[in-house]
């Protein structure tokens, strides 16, 4: 089990850590239990899946539609999170405006909200008779619920807090000293933002987006509450799995495994480039 990690960790660091003595059992034991708790359900799921049903599920048009919709909506939500979230994260990290702490607290609320409640809240705001939804429908003829845009809206609502808070951490970690240096050289805040702040915080920003994308990919509660479950329009992978769960166990396992593979694939693909923790 230590074989894989021994390759990843440079030798001198490993020795330095070991030189402080063996980790105490009182810390080692819970840590091992935590790993088992996280890994064992995934392993059992892989073991329990029938390979033939996996092939059938992968070839089914309903799965292809749901997977594609999940991918599209998550990506769209991530782009919106970048466009809206980065400026907000920058405001929170760099501008000392009155009420900053309050704004940060408000931003975090959807993070701790049960997703189903988030769906209900979205309906009161953007539903067809919602406070904002009704005038929107009256003026443009467009309503969010039960559309793909509604899915994106729900995804943004649940993912944005993670993205903003994580990006703010990344911007703070990059430090404001370089911003000060840029200012003394005559750079406007916008130029400094583009040429200095963002490039230096890029790893943190990218990690925040990956986090947001993953959160969005798994979004279920708010989506199904706000948008229902229409194949090809609002049926994402998690909602499809939820529906199948009631009938076909083999198919559900196969679908879940596909989700697992996609998630792990993204994590591995991005790990080396962006998710390197200091």
């Amino acid at each position: 089990m230590t074989g894989a990690t021994a390759h990843d960790v440079p030798r001198p660091r490993r020795r330095a850590r070991d030189s402080l003595g063996r980790p105490p059992l009182v810390l080692l034991l819970p840590a091992v239990v935590a790993v088992l708790l996280l890994v064992s359900p995934l392993v059992t799921m892989v073991v329990a899946t029938d390979p033939s049903s996996l092939a059938a599920a992968a070839g089914s048009p309903a799965v292809a539609d749901a997977l594609w919709l999940s991918f599209i909506t998550s990506t769209a939500a991530t782009v919106i999170c970048l466009v809206l979230g980065l400026p907000l994260a920058w405001m929170l990290a760099r501008v000392d405006f009155p009420g900053r702490r309050l704004v940060r607290s408000l931003v975090i609320v959807p993070m701790v909200l049960p997703p189903v409640v988030a769906g209900i809240a979205l309906r009161t705001a953007f539903g067809r008779s919602g406070l904002l939804g009704e005038p929107l429908l009256a003026t443009t003829g467009f309503a969010f619920p039960y559309t793909t845009w509604g899915v994106v809206l729900a995804h943004v609502f649940v993912a944005l807090p993670f993205v903003v808070i994580s990006m703010e951490g990344g911007l703070r970690a990059a430090g404001s000293g370089y911003d000060a240096a840029a200012a003394t050289l005559g750079a406007s805040r916008w130029l400094t933002f583009r040429r200095v702040t963002v490039p230096l915080a890029l790893p943190g920003i990218a990690a925040a987006l990956v986090l947001g994308w993953a959160r969005s990919l798994g979004e279920f509660g708010a989506t199904i509450t706000f948008n229902g479950n229409y194949p090809g329009i609002t049926q994402t992978m998690p909602t499809l799995i939820y529906v199948e769960r009631q009938s076909d166990t083999d198919a559900v396992l196969a679908l879940s495994l596909i989700m697992l593979a996609v998630s792990v694939g993204v994590l591995v693909a991005l790990r080396d480039r962006w998710l390197v923790t200091a």
């Binding site: 000293g177 370089y178 000060a180 240096a181 040429r195 200095v196 490039p199 230096l200």
Partner: peptide, 9 residues
């Protein structure tokens, strides 16, 4: 600056 603060990128 004391710590120079050359833009590392």
């Amino acid at each position: 600056f004391q710590d120079q603060r050359l833009f590392p990128n």
